[in-house]
Amino acid sequence: MSSNKFLRNLLVGGALAAGAAAWAIKPRSFTDKQHNYVPAVPDVWYAHRGLHDAGSGLTPQYAVESGEYVARARTMAMKAGYGDPSVTTAIAPENSLAAFAAAAEAGYGIELDLQLSADGQVVVLHDPDLKRVAGDPRRVAELTYDELTGIALFGNDAPGTAVASAPASVAPSGYFQHVPLFSDVLRVVAGRVPLIVEYKFDDNAVFGPREEELMEKGDALLQAYDGPYVIESFNPRAVEWYKEHRPEVCRGQLSWPAEVNGEGGVAEWAAGLLVFDFLSRPDFVAYDWKGGNSPQVRAARAMGATAVSWTVRSSDELAQCDDWFDRHIFEAFVPVR
Rank of each mutant, 00 (worst) to 15 (best):
Q121W: 01
R298N: 07
M1H: 10
A103I: 07
A141F: 04
R138D: 05
K79M: 12
S255F: 00
E147K: 09
G304C: 05
G272W: 00
D53M: 07
A102Q: 04
G252N: 08
R281T: 14
F333I: 07
R49L: 01
N95T: 14
T59W: 08
D136M: 07
S169D: 14
V308L: 15
H48A: 10
A99E: 01
V189D: 04
L125R: 02
E68N: 13
V230H: 00
A267M: 02
L51C: 09
T144E: 00
G262F: 08
A77L: 02
R301F: 02
G83K: 05
G120V: 11
G57L: 09
A99C: 07
V124F: 01
G292E: 06
G160C: 10
N9V: 11
G83Q: 04
F201S: 12
L97T: 09
E68K: 14
L130N: 04
A258K: 06
T75E: 15
A22C: 13
V163C: 01
A307K: 01
Y108N: 08
E248N: 12
A106G: 06
L195W: 00
G272V: 13
V239D: 04
L195N: 02
P137K: 10
F278I: 12
Y69D: 07
A77Y: 11
L130Y: 02
W23K: 03
V260E: 13
D119R: 06
V163I: 15
A220H: 06
N36W: 15
G19I: 07
G218N: 01
D157T: 11
K200G: 10
A80V: 11
H328Y: 02
A238E: 02
A158R: 12
A271N: 10
K5N: 13
V64D: 14
G174E: 08
G19W: 00
L222G: 09
E232C: 08
R138G: 11
V140F: 01
W256L: 15
S173F: 05
T161W: 04
Y242E: 08
A152N: 02
A300Q: 05
D203C: 05
F100A: 10
